[in-house]
Amino acid sequence: MGLMPSALVLPLRDAARGVGTFASRSRRLLGPSAAHLPDPLRDLARRVIDGARRASEHSPFRRHPAASDIAAACDVLAGTLSPARGARPLAAVLAFALETGLRVEGRSVPLVSETVLALAAGDALRAAGEDTDAPMRAAMLIARLVDAPVAGAMPGMPLGLGTAERGPMEHVLVAALLWLLAERADPSTDEDELLALCLSLTEAAFGEIAPVLGDPEALSAELHRLADVI
């Protein structure tokens, strides 16, 4: 992707995500009626859908975030990297966390837009002062991203109507930000394992988090307390 204009990378990743969502939803739609289709037509439909799913999964635009992206996301949260340089890797990391977390929640995964994530995260980070600490930046990000249309149903698809539900989004965003706030003293940290742990921690502590979600000061204190015990 060395020759790709950087402004195109996020929209292309979103497009690849869209193809994947289209394929999985189409397969579910086809499910009940597939038995009534003539064999050649059914096989053709399945080949097209599976081909689209494979193309999306193996697209160079969609990948597990690199260690350097995760480090940059942690740095932008800590205030040691500017929003201009950090918003894109932060969006990539948050998109991965949202897809992982919402899948773990057992719901049909909404279509996540990395482009919208980068724009909304950039807004929230620019609004933070230089002396804002990492938990407060995390609280401001959660407040901004919950209200931004960062995830929703794919247009034109009759399954999974509506935008992503607020409850699961809040839950997964809190877990994602705790993941980025967690100490990484051990260089061999397994990031997938750490994210899974933060999802479990958020699940366990959500009774204490939910009442302070609308109060950035209190949320930041709660995030600080929880990040300290990860």
């Binding site: 742990l197 479990s200 921690l201 699940e203 366990a204 502590a205 015990v229």
Partner: peptide, 13 residues
């Protein structure tokens, strides 16, 4: 059950 173990940790702490 990892979720219950995390809940154990939070409740115990």
């Amino acid at each position: 059950n990892r979720n219950r173990l995390a809940a154990t940790f939070v409740e115990w702490l």
